[in-house]
Every structure is written in structure tokens, then in C-alpha cells.
Computed example of a mutant assay.
Amino acid sequence: MKFKVFLFTVVILASVISPNTSSASEIDNEHESGLELTENHEIDMEKEFDEIEVLFNELDAQAGLDPDQITPFNFTLPLPVYFAKIVDLAEGETQMTVKANTIEGKGTTKGLKLTTVTSATTALKNFTTGAEKHGDKKTAIAKFTSTSTTSMNRASGLNDYANVTIHTATHQGVLYDARTANRAVDLN
């Protein structure tokens, strides 16, 4: 009798768990499809920087700041696009660090589902000089984090820097994307 009770308990437990989980082969297929979509997704970083520059100018205008008069001391507006959620598949953010001789940019995308493939592609631009530095597209699967980094030398004088990250997440053969950005006005 104990054997039948034990077997019955295992069958109930298995039927409760299995409808909500995917098999390993289904997850592998989802990852393969997602990796292919992610690798084939082209990013036009020049267009991304053009759009973020428009956003910067709009924020400056709303604050009553003349773009030619912004200094590290009067630029206190937080840029509202440093964190993004891609549907319920992933979360992404952009961080920029000003160091003694360099500006460092980092973009991360963290997957929130086992079947998701994420990517992060970050780039820095000095709007004052026009110099750009692009990081590599990095990918991750499941609930891991993709991290793209880049850095550039700090230019002398007053400079307006942006760090933009393109985040992607795939699910069931569809690629979703979002953008995050940070800004630093720097006097070196």
C-alpha cells in the first residue's frame, strides 16, 4: 500500500510542475532562434545618437537652459531614460563613469525568463568634438546579464558626453528592443 501512495504523490507533483515548464529541447530551440534574431539585428548608432541629441536639447529647453551655456555646475537634470523594461522579458540600464583620464560607458540587459535571449550594445559620443566609441554587442541567455562596455579619452575643455545602450530581448521568435542613455557635461 505504501508503494501506491508514494507513486500517486509523485504523479500529482509531476503534473503540477510540468504544465508550466518547458522541456530542455524547447528552451534550446528558443535560445537558438533568439540568438539568430539577435545576431542579425542591425543597429544604426548614428541614428540613435541623433535621437538622443534631440532629447537632450528638448530637456535643456524645458529647463530654460541655453545649450551653449551648460556647465557641469548648472546641469542637474536627471535624464529619464537610464533604465528600461522590455515587456516582461528583460531589464536594461546604462551607466557612465567619468574618471581621471577617461569616460567609461556600460550597458546591461538582464533576462527575466528562461527562454529569453538578451543583448546589450553600448556606445559613447562626445557631442562637442563629434568623437564616438562603440562597444561590442554582447548576448546572454535565460536570466543571465549581457554587458557591453566601451571607453574614450576625456577631451580638454567643456564637453557634452552621451552613453547610449540598445537593449534587445527575444521571445517566441520576436525581437523587442529599448534604449537607455546617460549624459555627462564635463569640464576637464
Score class of each variant (00 low, 15 high):
residue 132 E to D: 00
residue 124 L to Y: 04
residue 148 S to N: 02
residue 151 S to L: 00
residue 119 S to Y: 14
residue 140 A to E: 11
residue 118 T to S: 15
residue 112 L to T: 12
residue 117 V to K: 08
residue 124 L to F: 08
residue 119 S to K: 14
residue 112 L to I: 15
residue 148 S to R: 01
residue 138 K to F: 05
residue 141 I to G: 05
residue 114 L to M: 13
residue 147 T to L: 04
residue 151 S to A: 06
residue 114 L to K: 13
residue 126 N to Q: 08
residue 112 L to S: 12
residue 140 A to D: 06
residue 116 T to S: 13
residue 149 T to I: 13
residue 121 T to M: 15
residue 142 A to R: 11
residue 136 D to L: 07
residue 129 T to G: 01
residue 126 N to C: 06
residue 119 S to G: 13
residue 112 L to M: 15
residue 132 E to M: 06
residue 120 A to F: 13
residue 119 S to N: 15
residue 148 S to I: 01
residue 131 A to E: 06
residue 150 T to D: 12
residue 121 T to S: 15
residue 122 T to D: 05
residue 128 T to K: 01
residue 129 T to A: 01
residue 119 S to D: 15
residue 117 V to F: 09
residue 116 T to H: 11
residue 123 A to N: 14
residue 125 K to W: 03
residue 150 T to A: 07
residue 125 K to S: 07
residue 129 T to S: 05
residue 142 A to N: 08
residue 113 K to W: 12
residue 148 S to T: 01
residue 149 T to W: 05
residue 114 L to R: 14
residue 138 K to T: 10
residue 119 S to W: 14
residue 137 K to C: 05
residue 150 T to W: 10
residue 118 T to K: 15
residue 115 T to G: 10
residue 147 T to H: 02
residue 145 T to I: 03
residue 123 A to C: 13
residue 132 E to R: 03
residue 141 I to E: 10
residue 146 S to N: 11
residue 132 E to H: 01
residue 149 T to L: 10
residue 145 T to A: 05
residue 127 F to E: 00
residue 118 T to H: 07
residue 146 S to V: 08
residue 140 A to C: 04
residue 132 E to W: 02
residue 124 L to C: 09
residue 120 A to V: 14
residue 130 G to S: 00
residue 128 T to F: 05
residue 131 A to I: 10
residue 134 H to T: 04
residue 151 S to N: 11
residue 146 S to T: 09
residue 128 T to Q: 00
residue 129 T to N: 00
residue 126 N to R: 03
residue 144 F to D: 04
residue 140 A to W: 03
residue 118 T to A: 13
residue 115 T to W: 04
residue 141 I to V: 09
residue 130 G to T: 02
residue 151 S to C: 02
residue 134 H to P: 00
residue 132 E to F: 00
residue 144 F to E: 05
residue 120 A to K: 14
residue 145 T to P: 02
residue 133 K to Q: 12
residue 145 T to S: 10
residue 117 V to P: 08
residue 116 T to M: 12
residue 136 D to T: 11
residue 131 A to M: 07
residue 122 T to S: 13
residue 128 T to D: 01
residue 138 K to Y: 05
residue 144 F to Q: 04
residue 116 T to F: 13
residue 144 F to L: 03
residue 115 T to F: 08
residue 121 T to C: 15
residue 143 K to V: 08
residue 141 I to M: 02
residue 114 L to I: 13
residue 133 K to N: 13
residue 146 S to P: 09
residue 119 S to M: 15
residue 113 K to C: 07
residue 143 K to M: 09
residue 144 F to R: 05
residue 114 L to P: 07
residue 130 G to Q: 03
residue 114 L to A: 13
residue 123 A to P: 14
residue 120 A to P: 11
residue 145 T to N: 02
residue 113 K to M: 12
residue 129 T to H: 01
residue 114 L to T: 13
residue 134 H to Q: 08
residue 128 T to V: 01
residue 114 L to W: 08
residue 145 T to D: 03
residue 117 V to I: 12
residue 149 T to R: 09
residue 144 F to S: 04
residue 136 D to R: 09
residue 151 S to R: 06
residue 121 T to D: 13
residue 145 T to L: 00
residue 126 N to G: 08
residue 123 A to E: 13
residue 120 A to G: 11
residue 144 F to V: 00
residue 150 T to C: 09
residue 137 K to F: 04
residue 114 L to V: 12
residue 136 D to E: 14
residue 122 T to F: 11
residue 127 F to S: 00
residue 150 T to Y: 03
residue 140 A to G: 03
residue 151 S to H: 05
residue 131 A to S: 06
